[in-house]
Design a protein around this nucleic acid. Sequence first.
DNA 1: GGTAAAATGGACCCGCAAGTCCAGAAGAGG
DNA 2: CCTCTTCTGGACTTGCGGGTCCATTTTACC
Lengths: 205, 205
Amino acid sequence: MRSAREPRLTAKGAATRRRIVEGAAAEIRERGAAATTLDDICARTSTSKSQIFHYFPDGKEELLLAVAAREADRVLEDQQPHLGDLTKWEAWQEWRDVVVRRYEKQGVHCALGVLITELGRSTPAAQTLTAQLVERWQAALRTGVRHMQDAGLFKPELDADRTAAALLAAVQGGVTILMSTGRVTHLEAALDTSLALLRNDNPPP
Amino acid sequence: MRSAREPRLTAKGAATRRRIVEGAAAEIRERGAAATTLDDICARTSTSKSQIFHYFPDGKEELLLAVAAREADRVLEDQQPHLGDLTKWEAWQEWRDVVVRRYEKQGVHCALGVLITELGRSTPAAQTLTAQLVERWQAALRTGVRHMQDAGLFKPELDADRTAAALLAAVQGGVTILMSTGRVTHLEAALDTSLALLRNDNPPP
DNA sequence: GGTAAAATGGACCCGCAAGTCCAGAAGAGG
DNA sequence: CCTCTTCTGGACTTGCGGGTCCATTTTACC
């Protein structure tokens, strides 16, 4: 992905760049993307604005995009290994628990949620990023649904893609409400209800 | 709700105030709350900043809050009469259709979604407003679930509040993904899946 | 019609935050 | 060591946007 025309980074440079992205992510989690200034990020990361523009020539937008990309990866990583191995009931339950715990712990401080909603609509690059995250996440769930169908644990008539979409929406809705109200109950209810559907539709043995 | 200490509004004044709120809502729908400036609103509504501060002495925050309150009411109104009369299967289906159509039409331009996510976390007043909307919406759904239980159409063991929470999360998640991607498929999948659960759990006649 | 309150226009102020610049320090590589 | 590149600090510029002020017009009401 990295263009060959960019200046090569030395070890120190790469470390600084990483520090900036980390610090920016933390700041955004705490205060929101719009409320986070470059000076805040400089203060937190012990850098100066010249570094920010050195590593992110297009300024704030480029930095925010880098943060968003990193957080998107992290969202999926944090659900592993369960998300990649949804082959039996226990795995689904564990996945559900991991998701709930992750967001319960993060509470209202969800950098990705902030970025999607504050920056998602504004730039095409951010929209693409969001769309890719949705697609990757949904694909993992879809694969899980298919595994269960192959194992005879989910009804074969089930539309795997649609089911994955519904699960993803359940998570997303629960998280959105969590971010607004600070309560994790909706996320739990949404996930449990969705999983209950799959259980009750369980084909007879 | 209106304090007695505020200056009394004349007919013209009330009209101007309304115009400002409408214009602000429209602008926010199109560009987001953070990107909307008071000058934008002035230009669109043919007013000057002095009027904004005349009608909203606390400035932008107060105006945004007024917009959010109005949009919150509107969200619920737009779901009527179906949301208030969820007493049979057809009503649920009609409600589902209304919700999908409403957001399909609005597309990514959801002022409330924007406000909840961009302003919800920042101020206590906004958080309260959001919490109230969630509670009112969920209460309506909960009442519907109870009606169905009383009529023997939903299982009596169902937790009405939890079910309502799951439905609300489904809508919210679908809308969030709609706002990010422009596609209504997740909203449909989430709602249909949730309703299917209730149908399949249908107690035997 | 007179007067007090409300409504309006628009110039103005001010601070903040994004972005620029350049000089100098720290590394890499021979 | 010499030199070229990368990295860093921090002062500076600039524009934008929220908020203020006051003079003027319009409306309400007796």
